[in-house]
Design a protein around this nucleic acid. Structure first.
Length: 480
RNA sequence: GGCGGCGUGGCCAAGUGGUAAGGCAUGAGCCUGCAAAGCUCUGACCCCCGGUUCGAAUCCGGGCGCCGCCUCCA
């Protein structure tokens, strides 16, 4: 078996992967800041970490996966100024910060479940780990990494020589650029807040006492503190969107390596690329973010989005468009049809038996599927193997069923399961079933005009009739 | 100004030195009362120009085009 290789952002290279503790992988994924609905780009990140986790599980590793919920401290704008996102949303809607956070945390969990992501072993909230964050800040203060200015406690990036390492930053070059805003009092442009002081006269909903006064933690602090709490000082994999590398992750590294005295803090940094939205580029300020619910409203099965995700490599920008998601939905539907016919989800099916020749073919396909994923998680290549099995005309149904079942443990497409999507159950509505019977009778009498009339009438209601070898079925889609 | 990525058939997308996976769509056929579904068949001068090589989509140089990050952002 070939070695597992993953691309690591820090070293900008693909390396053989092996967990620090044999047999046990510890990974951390940057989760949502819960001030608004997750969009499909966020979902790509979630799906990426889920695919990674499922693959590691299929390799026999025990996996401890942590995904944080950031429910405080993420500022609306520029470096370390502006309003806290959650406080801002609360003010805008008249709800409490807790209500906002609780609501969007639930949406995030529901979306993850809808696309069949495994729940993380730990899903810690920043507000429930304030002591851990204060502890880290104290460690940094003791090490002389912090300095205090008017609005908060800042990390002095010049004290950390490896600051630019993860994202390969050219700090001097950047400083010449016009886009770096400089907060008054900061020693270096890249310095960031570890603890922010509550402003006098401004009543925040979320603030805590600390050795430095009342306030709230800086955005990056919670990830370092919670990763440490659940995974220890040194762990295997940290994932997130590519945009997080240069600021958020860079700052996490600075805090963690200086605070906990480790290097490297994380063995593999894995970043997923963005969804390319083309002309309809998503922008929260423009209010045109696309969410999973938007897709569902258009009749797209959430798992069709998962299928869509699997069609491109995670480190490649993936073009999203209605046409692209619709073709994925079609492909997914067909794959499901095959899987159902094969009984992929039928628990009753016993251990398959096959001859030596077939066993060799099965082993070869299984090896290619596994090798594709071991090759820096090349999902599209693995999907090609899936289709090869789905359309194989020489393997026995039992062999194909067994292969697809094994593949799906990693893919998470719920292959072969009866899905209750928009439209599955037929035979549940007496009126429609009655009309269907009438149509059958008309067909039998070769009165096709009447048969088609019934079909058209139902279609006008958004109900589609499909004749199958087993008889007519109907399903309710969206009204045309 | 700095950092990084991409440009493969109508669309999405693998492939990083030996002459192009897969999905969707299109067209033709089979099936069907008609549809739908399903099945079979169907398509590529790999952005352009140079170079290296026995051999390049794959490496190098130069163009052109597109995108992301550096500021909250997956």
């Amino acid at each position: 078996m070939s070695a597992i290789e993953f691309y690591d952002t820090r070293t900008r290279s693909r390396r053989a992967f092996a967990p620090i503790t044999p047999g046990h992988v510890r990974m951390y994924s940057c989760g949502p800041t819960v001030y608004g609905p997750p969009h499909i780009g966020n979902l790509r990140s979630r799906l990426f970490s889920d695919l990674l986790k499922r693959f590691l599980l299929s390799e026999g590793f025990r996996v401890t996966h942590v995904i944080n919920i950031t429910d405080v401290g993420h500022l609306v704008s520029d470096a370390d100024e502006g309003e806290d996102k959650i406080e801002a949303a609360a003010r805008r809607t008249g709800k409490s910060a807790e209500e906002i956070a609780a609501h969007y945390t639930q949406v995030w969990r529901d979306d993850g479940a809808a696309v069949n992501c495994l729940p993380p072993e730990h899903n810690p909230k920043a507000t429930e780990h304030i002591p851990e964050q204060i502890d880290l800040a104290k460690r940094l203060e003791a090490g002389g990494y912090l300095y205090r200015i008017e609005d908060g406690l800042y990390f002095d990036t010049s004290r950390f020589p490896r600051y630019a390492e993860l994202a390969h930053l050219d700090l001097a070059g950047q400083a010449e650029g016009a886009r770096i805003g400089v907060t008054a009092g900061k020693r270096n442009p890249a310095d960031f807040a570890v603890w922010k002081f509550a402003e006098a006269g401004v009543q925040r909903q979320q603030e805590w006492d600390s050795p430095w006064g009342r306030g709230f933690p800086g955005w990056h602090l919670e990830c370092s503190a919670m990763a440490d709490r659940y995974l220890g000082h040194h762990f295997d994999i940290h994932t997130g969107g590519i945009d997080l590398a240069s600021v958020h992750h860079t700052n996490e590294v600075a805090q963690s390596e200086c605070g906990y005295g480790v290097h490297p803090w994380v063995e593999f940094w894995m970043h997923n690329e963005f969804l390319d939205m083309g002309s309809e580029k998503m922008s929260k300020s423009k209010g045109n973010v696309r969410t999973l619910s938007d897709l569902v409203e258009k009749g797209v099965d959430p798992l069709a989005f998962r299928y869509f995700f699997l069609q491109a490599h995670y480190r490649q920008q993936q073009s999203f468009s209605d046409e692209a998601i619709q073709s994925a939905a079609t492909g997914y539907r067909r794959l499901q049809a095959v899987a159902r016919e094969l009984g992929v989800a039928d628990a009753a099916a016993g251990e398959p038996t096959w001859g030596a020749e077939e066993a060799a073919a099965v082993a070869e396909l299984r090896a290619r599927f596994r090798a594709a994923l071991a090759d820096d998680l090349n999902a599209p290549k693995a999907m090609a193997v899936v289709w090869e099995v789905a359309r194989h005309d020489r393997l026995s149904p039992a062999a194909r069923r067994d292969l697809l079942r094994g593949f799906d443990a990693v893919l998470g497409l719920r292959l072969g399961e009866a899905r209750l999507a928009v439209a599955d159950e037929s035979g549940q509505d007496p009126r429609i079933d009655g009309l269907l019977a009438e149509r059958q009778a008309a067909k039998k009498a070769r009165n096709f005009a009447e048969a088609d009339r019934i079909r058209d009438a139902l279609k006008a209601e958004g109900i589609e009739i499909v004749d199958t070898p087993a008889g007519p079925e109907w399903r309710r889609g969206k009204p045309a």
